[in-house]
Amino acid sequence: MTTILQYTLSGLAIGGVYALVALGFHIMWSTAKAVNFAHGDTLMIGAVLAVMGVDAGMPVWLACGLSILAGGAFGVALERIAVRPFTAEANSIGWMLSTIAIGIMAESLATMQFGGFSRALHSPGVDRPLNVFGAGVYAQELLIPAVAVALTLGLGLMQKRTLIGRAMRAVAHDKRAAALMGVNVGRIVAISFGLSALLGAGAGVLVAPVIQASATMGVLLGLKGFAVAIIGGITSAPGVLVAGLLFGVLEKFVEGYISTAAREIVAFSVMIAVLLVFPQGLFGKRETVKV
């Protein structure tokens, strides 16, 4: 029983990271019908810059804040440079490869500046584990899924209540119509990339104390976050959140009861299977053909 609880708690922590990354994919996809394929590197940038900030003598809160802002700026710049020029094209090869290229460059720069090592970002959240009915977990780990849930709710509120949020929904629904209604589509897309990058960098800062910051930390988290977004239905924020948390828990149980190496095989097979049965993801909206 304790074991099951332990797996669930550990799974929720990892799943929270997937959900935060996937939420970023959701925001980008909704407005631009394109994503930053290297979104995992946004997370890396947040974590790595935070550690470098602390190295440079900043207080932790300032280093984290600045690195999240830098992540957001990165997202906006990336959209302008690597996504916008290619979204007009019919197929997606253009922005896929250009964002992958920027990811490679970011990772390589980070390796040079930061070194190949993993580095710790200190947080009081990982000083000692909490005991939850016999299972051990860091406070920081509980914080991650909580933040993911809060941000999903916040995003929903923002999209309903604020002008920018409503504009984002309008653009997601129909770009041309939104433009005709006077929405500056380009700016909304840029904002959504910035917002998703803020989330990504924030996730990096949150997770760095738990999994350590390194130049290569983003790649797999990014790919899995994307897989989660697709499973949940990339058009639905709550769907993405649920899928992320479930995916994390599933992974832990596969690790616990089958083997670590089977984890990737099972997780990605599940993703393909879900897509075959629900082409729009579990909670995504179906798009109909019209001739």
């Binding site: 997606s92 790919l223 697709i230 190496a261 990737e264 990605f268 075959l276 082409p279």
Partner: peptide, 27 residues
Amino acid sequence: PTVRVRGVYLAVVTIAFGIIVENVAIE
């Protein structure tokens, strides 16, 4: 899968396929 999914979805399916093959080779 292309019967049901296209574009970026298909790209993700192929990525997943590559990762599965790599891990089966390990396992």
